[in-house]
Design a protein around this nucleic acid. Sequence first.
RNA 1: GGGCCGUUAGCUCAACUGGCAGAGCAACUGACUCUUAAUCAGUAGGUUGUAGGUUCGAUUCCUACACGGCUCACCA
Length: 497
Amino acid sequence: MEEKEQEKNELLKQREEKLGKIIELGLPAYPNKFEWTQTVREIVNAYKMKSAEELEGQPVAVRVPGRIMLIRDMGKASFFHISDASERLQVYVRKELVPERDFKLLKLLDLGDHVGIAGTLFRTKTGELTVKVESLHFLAKSLLPLPEKFHGLADVELRHRRRYVDLAVNPDVKRIFETRCAIIKAIRRFLDQRGYVEVETPMLHPIPGGALARPFITHHNALDMDLYLRIAPELYLKRLIVGGFDRVYEVSRVFRNEGVSHMHNPEFTMLEFYEAYSCYTDLMALTEEMVTGIAQNVLGKTELKYGEELIPLDGPWPRMAYMEAIERFSGLTRNDLADEQKVLQEALRWGMSGAKTHSKALDYLFDRYVKPKLQRPTYVIDHPTSISPLSKQHPDNPAIVERFELWIGGMEIANGFSELNDPVEQLRRFEEQTKDRTAGDEEAHLVDLDYIRALRCGMPPTAGEGVGIDRLTMLLTDSENIREIILFPLLRPHEER
RNA sequence: GGGCCGUUAGCUCAACUGGCAGAGCAACUGACUCUUAAUCAGUAGGUUGUAGGUUCGAUUCCUACACGGCUCACCA
């Protein structure tokens, strides 16, 4: 059994032997520190435009760490590339130019090893920016080989299971996550400038609320109580509005115990923000400014390429009432849509499963007919009250609410509304939801009596909004699968071999 | 959860109708002091996802299972 293991890991054994020889050279196996002055990316950015003559006239000394990605050994001289997972830099080692021990070290290096390079910049005769090495420093060994230098790691499953390898060999992957970071930073900057306060509210909820979704259940031992991983921070943020934080936001993880797909990961990141003394039209204007601002900031332009589509973000973004949108794209008349039987039939014809209510069936038709058409930024507004238990009704029509969804590239990017602040009406809505739940709708909202108490204390007129950071990132990085923009997406565990 | 497709060397992929499991890269040995996926000569590397079945013989056909991709259903 053990012999078999050893045979299996021949590549591992070879590299362990090389590490042994490196130790024999008197070098530490895992040194603590390399004093560096520049990163690979800094060097490439700063000197990529400098000519050979400029580099020769004013020699640039560098000390740069990196991982070996490619070796071209020619006996008494050797070229290799080091990488910081963003950029690559060529390095040239010549036997007569480095200490004897460094040259011996060179022969013991493998693809994937971390090294520190000290030397000066020059250009080879083919024009590539290169470091002429004066000393070579061993930093850490890669005992397992990196994937092939040309194709890299292509297997999607392995890329996501072993993100560390994916990142190391595929520079575009690191770029996507840098863009994700830039998006979140731009959002914070945008809201901070407008007087928003960033807050943190509980992730462990005694009553899950703020969205229509099934929660994850967990348990607190000392208190012996079940808790739910939050499905939305909404109800806590509005409690803060009651308390006098007029503008709050939270960027954080929410958890929904639903299916997994190219658009859904069980944990994902939401921005939610609430602003007192505003209504939903104010937030539509704000969102337009924020999203175009982020695109400008992150991409340097306001036109997106998403899959086959070219999507200009220029405003003003059209607003389309929910019922009118269904009418327009389904070809059904207003009277048809008012007829519960007709709507149910139409939805079942499309493949809706199980018994559903009139409004659920309408929403189904919306997904089927309208959603794919909403490539350019569009606000769908004024949803039915029955599917919006936390939104405020129109003053002149209680059947619909002051709500909007922002659709771009066929994806729902944001959802906002004027917040319902009437505790009596809110309790009535919760009780409606309870009926749905009794009828078998596991996603229906639960009654949160403490939230009702908060509303009774008086919440000012307020508008609030949630933005799916993952979807926004997909849009801005032209990613079709949510797993491309989540570092460690949920996967079934796989037996290690 | 349903349907379709996939899983072969460390990585990327071949293998016709069932007939000795192959290449490139990586690795190893050697040559090479400006290379660009360096080149040249040689070597080694496999329980073909797992478990059964059919067959003289299975990477190939059948069944089940595991994991993944696409898609449909539900959700953001």
